[in-house]
Design a protein around this nucleic acid. Structure first.
Lengths: 338, 338
DNA sequence: TTGTAGGCGTTATCAA
DNA sequence: TTGATAACGCCTACAA
């Protein structure tokens, strides 16, 4: 019985050459039949497709990457792999790259610029065709590495107005302002801002918060922690809030994790929301619409940020003309908690 | 002024040969200095390290993959990219692979065996060194592809007792039984099971549920939906539950998303938890410990499942002896909701 | 300890 | 339309 699957290569896998040999033609023709079918005669094309299927040929990406100087990889650096926000961003990128046959290489920077630097350095060896970064804050060395790589880069989450950069995101400041204005409109006057995980976006939201308060001649009440954000931390922070600002009638949490935690703790302590304390969050996580009361929040288009950023990057990789800045905006979700 | 960075290669990047040329030695020596420093004289080694740094050489993974028939890639197929459970699993895998210089290629199967098949087929071209799969249920074609690839495979989440397979997970059935027994112990007698996203694990938990009820001579009350699971669905399902089983005094939700939603809806309607209705969930998501009342749940070691599965896979890739089945167990988290 | 030769699987280039 | 040749960057095997 003849060998059905010739395995001549070192890897034990069927190669182009194997298919070519089986058909007594040259490897390059098989390659063409797969990549540019129109350049191969219909008859031969048909035979090739048959053979490819029968032998179970599967193109080797490493070889292709080597030959074309295109890896099909996109490096994605995000500050967290568990934060629902970035999970959604990654989902958008994934869905945009998948149909293009491209892959993402994910690096977790843990909200650290030093980590980002290291990750970038390590991943450059994978010869990514482009890079997706979170936020605008990067170390000098990171910037140097990026420049030296000459790879297209798209920044996600925030907006960059520099002409030579690409970014997809929203104005975190404007969003923070919108939430604060909303609370003011609702009649709250002693509004606190509670922030953890002091990343740049948190600070930008705070700027918007302060701007809105200033517009209305109100005083700021802020609590800042470097601790990573979480629902549990939110619960804990309620104590802190009431201790430092016992008079406050509303709180704007820098994200929904904190807001949810605060809400639960209010329930636990019998503090009426929003009657005694109104709560506003940020990001509109999936559960926020369902809590009791439902959480007022800022919905951020993070899935779309991922998608559009990936799309913009691919355009850049292909040297296509495309806009370099995309403001995807945000939506205030006014719900029961305010 | 001399060119500081020789860029001879097509990719415009510094190659081994560039470094070698600069030092007037051969490329292989540079290669050795990097991979097996002890095989290069200290003096030369030092000069090479210098040159590598100065020129900014970065090894090309594609070339390495081609030459060594090792891609450093691990294919990971998960049913969801947003479910906290798999996010955590991916985190564990990531943390285990990272220090080894290996990468994960992530495929989202959307809880579909057909999708899994397609993803597998597409990713095989990346020549992964091994494969990490979720669950034991796979289509015949998937199984055929796996067998043909001859790649090591580790299955996550459930346990496999077949001798020739590798798996890391827990007994979903036993966990379901433990939760139900707990509810029975607490005095509940009319316990319902509510399931969405009819995946195999959901069914195994149901088996445990039925077994525990049978032990106590109690009747089952089950609600099954194919709809994807979510907090919102949980809220909606409370109506359904009370309509179909108005007498039930406790409900075991197949996961915490549903359980949280139900809890919130109970709050909204003023249904006392656990006095009127006790609630038990599954997976112990991050927020579940903080809701009011806190949610009784089954904590699953998903991060460790990811880590151990990755570790087991790497051992297999390196042909090392290692156990082939790892039961990481679970923990009942008895809290206020029951 | 260092180097030479050749190959990994694919594609670009040029020729037939 | 098809093919020969060389190259992509690195590594294994063997030799010096």
């Amino acid at each position: 019985m003849a060998e059905r699957k010739p395995r001549n290569s070192a890897t034990g896998r069927v190669t182009l050459a194997d298919v070519a040999r089986a058909l007594d033609i040259s490897a390059i023709t098989v390659s063409r039949a797969l990549k540019t079918p129109e350049r191969v005669s219909p008859v031969l094309r048909e035979r090739i497709t048959q053979a490819v299927r029968q032998l179970g040929y599967r193109p080797n990406h490493a070889a292709r990457a080597l030959a074309t100087a295109r890896s099909g990889n996109v490096l994605v650096l995000v500050p967290s792999l568990t934060n629902e926000v970035f999970v959604d961003v990654l989902g958008g990128i994934h869905d945009e790259l998948q149909p293009r046959g491209m892959q993402m290489l994910i690096g977790n920077t843990h909200y650290s610029l030093r980590e980002e630097e290291k990750q970038l350095e390590a991943f450059l060896g994978h010869a990514p065709d482009g890079i997706l970064l979170s936020g605008l804050d990067h170390s000098p060395r990171t910037q140097a590495l990026l420049a030296e790589s000459r790879l297209p880069v798209v920044t996600m989450m925030e907006l960059d107005n520099a002409a030579d950069s690409r970014s997809v995101g929203l104005s975190q400041r404007a969003a923070g302002q919108a939430m604060t204005r909303h609370l003011i409109t609702r009649g709250y006057r002693r509004i606190a801002y509670v922030a953890a995980q002091g990343d740049p976006r948190t600070r930008q939201r705070a700027e918007g918060y302060r701007a809105a308060l200033a517009e209305a001649n109100l005083d700021a009440r802020e609590i800042w922690l470097e601790t990573p954000s979480s629902v549990g931390l939110g619960a804990t922070l309620l104590t802190e809030l009431l201790a430092q600002h016992p008079d406050c009638d509303a709180v704007f949490c820098c994200n929904d994790d904190l807001a949810q935690g605060m809400l639960y703790e209010c329930q636990r302590r019998g503090i009426a929301v929003p009657a005694r304390l109104a709560i506003g969050g940020f990001n509109d996580l999936a559960a926020s619409a369902w809590t009791h009361p439902a959480l007022t929040s800022i919905a951020t288009p993070r899935y779309d940020i991922g998608r559009q950023a990936a799309r913009m990057l691919c355009a850049a990789i292909d040297n296509q003309e495309a806009p370099r800045a995309l403001d995807l905006g945000f939506t205030l979700m006014a719900r029961g908690s305010s």
